[in-house]
Every structure is written in C-alpha cells, then in structure tokens.
Computed example of a mutant assay.
Amino acid sequence: MNRYSGFTLLAVDDHEHNLFTLRTLVQQHMDVTILEATSGQQALDIALSGAPIDLIILDIQMPEMDGFQTASMLKIRKKTRDIPIIFLTAAFKTQEFQQKGYEVGAVDYLLKPIDDNQLINKISTYFRLIEKERSLNLILEQKVAERTAELAHAKQHLENIITYMGEALLVLNPDGKIMEVNPALRKMLGYSDEELLGMGIGDIFEEEEDEQAGAFMGTWLEALIRVGALNKIEARFITRDGKRIPILFSRTAVKNEAGKISDILCIAKDMTGYIRQDESSGDNTIDADALS
C-alpha cells in the first residue's frame, strides 16, 4: 500500500489509547508517517524541530495547554503556520466552540466518538489537496526554470552578438552620458570601460560643424523624439590620444512605457578605408560609391 506515501501526520491527544486507535485506523488505509504527542507542548516541540508535517489531528481537551492554545502557538510560528489542523473533541459540540476552533486556525472540526470513514475521508481530502498544490508548484517551478534558461540563453546570444559585432556600439542615457559600450568601441577609441562609462558623448564625438556638435543632445533628442531613429550621419570619433576617426553614425531612441526616451542606441562604422579627397576643397569625405 503506497497511498499517500511520503506524507507525515501528527496526532496529538493526552490519552495513549486514543492515539493507538487513531494510529491503527490511519495505518489501515494509508501509508503515511505518523508522529504522536501527548501534550500541546510536546506537539510544538515535534512540529518545530522535526521533519516537515503535512497535517495535524489535534484533540481540544488536554491539560496545561489545550488544543485551542496549541493551535494558536502553531499559527504564530513561521515554520508551522501553514500546516492544516483538524480538531477532535468529545465535549465541545456547540457552534460557539466550533467557531473558536476555526478562529485559531483549524481547517476542520470533528466530534468524538470518531466516525472512521468520515475521519479517513477528511484526511484523504487534505492530502489530495496538498498533492495537487505540490504538483502545481512543481509544474510552476519547471516552467520558471525553463523560462529562466531561455532568457539566459537569449541574453548570452545577445551578448555574443554585441561582443563580436564589427561596428562600435554605445548606449547613452537621455542626457548623453555613456552607459554601455562594446569591445569594438573600446578598441576603436583606446579607452577602457572604466574610462568610458559616465563620459559625455561630446567627449568622444564631433560632427562636421561646430554648431551641430554643440547642439548634440538638444538637436538629436528633438529629432529622435519625432522620428525614433537617425541614420548614416557623417561624423568623427575622437580617440584617447586625440586622433580623429571618420565614422558613419546611426542613432535609435528606446522609449519606456510612458513614451519617453530612456536610452539612445548608437552604432558607428569606422570609415577609414572609404575616404576620398575632395579636389576642390581639400576636405576628406566618405565615398558613397565605394560603399555601394
């Protein structure tokens, strides 16, 4: 017989023969571990120090600490507060006393002399509910674990793309401060992560005209708010040693739930191999034909 194997029942009664009767009855119908206590204090000691208990059958009439007091003490302790309690009594048959049992945390209330079938059905009902709850918890834990693994895989995949992409990537906050960078940007500029994070974008970037560079965040932010992205802008990065690197720059706004920009994603392509000399002005410009 393996019915409810693995469950633990605590029976509490100050009369040994009542415990014997209860133990014999339960063992005839189910394969559960039965713990026994002959006083409220002993029940507390067992519940707080031993293995997890799934259900408590608790007699109300006991000397020193009765069933109501015992239940109250069990319910105020974190380890035992959620254990369902079934009260047994021969004396307290009025509605008032039954209501008191529910108020101190009992889930059910049975009268002595014990109706064998009724008691076994009650115990089985609560064990089935516990089984169902545990099964649902296992399913939930499995789904959480699977989802966590999926998110971890997706995160790693994204990190690999960012790490190994050839273009430089920066993430700015709406104030133009650098929040994140990828290895391509660090290599291009010669800065470490510690040096770059928190710097203003204007410290490493310049556009063709001084006015454009000065209005970097104001003009950009207005444009980003309107269109969400700005692509293929010719500009220059300023490296750690002051060298200018020609780049083709794209900027994309990331908005939060309120519709406000929370981050600005910037991707820059090093155009050092695509520069031609303008014969009339002597300026270096990006050869669009070379990119097609």
Rank of each mutant, 00 (worst) to 15 (best):
G50F: 01
G198D: 07
H157K: 08
D108M: 01
G176P: 08
E194G: 00
K232D: 11
D283M: 10
A288K: 14
D13P: 02
K232N: 11
D289C: 06
A168K: 03
R244L: 13
D115W: 03
H17N: 04
L221T: 10
G67D: 12
M188P: 03
Q69C: 12
A253M: 09
K187Y: 03
G218D: 10
A91R: 12
D210I: 09
D59R: 15
A258W: 07
A253D: 07
T21W: 07
A168R: 08
T8I: 12
A229Y: 13
K132C: 03
A223L: 08
M271Y: 07
L110Q: 12
V171N: 03
I264F: 08
S72C: 14
R23P: 05
F7M: 14
H17A: 00
L9T: 05
M30N: 09
A235V: 00
A90M: 14
I76G: 09
L111M: 15
E207W: 07
I34D: 10
G218E: 14
A168D: 08
P52Y: 05
E211R: 09
A11K: 02
K177P: 04
T24D: 12
I57M: 13
D108C: 01
P84H: 10
V171H: 07
G50Y: 02
T38Y: 01
I204D: 01
M199H: 09
F249K: 02
H157L: 05
A90I: 15
F97K: 14
K132T: 15
I86W: 00
I233R: 00
K187P: 01
I245C: 01
E16P: 00
F20A: 15
L172R: 06
Q277E: 04
H17E: 02
E167T: 06
D59P: 06
L248C: 02
K155C: 04
N231S: 06
F237S: 03
N231F: 04
G200V: 10
K132Q: 13
G50A: 06
S5F: 10
Q98V: 05
T239F: 00
F87L: 14
I83Y: 06
L111R: 08
I201N: 02
S5D: 14
V32R: 12
I85K: 09
I238G: 05
Q212P: 00
K79V: 09
A154W: 02
Q28M: 11
I114R: 15
A47P: 01
T163K: 15
A268M: 15
I60C: 08
N284A: 06
L58T: 11
F205Q: 02
N18M: 13
E222G: 11
I286G: 03
D203G: 08
E159F: 11
V32S: 12
E167Q: 13
G242D: 04
H153T: 09
L196N: 09
A154K: 03
S49D: 12
A90E: 08
I161L: 13
Q156K: 11
R23D: 10
G218T: 13
Y126L: 15
Q28K: 11
G40V: 08
H15I: 10
E257N: 13
T148P: 04
M271T: 06
N137I: 07
D289N: 14
L48H: 02
T24H: 12
T148Q: 09
K132V: 13
D241W: 03
T8M: 04
T21S: 12
D270F: 08
L25Y: 12
I123E: 04
F237R: 04
I85V: 15
I233E: 01
R240I: 01
E159G: 11
E16K: 11
L48K: 04
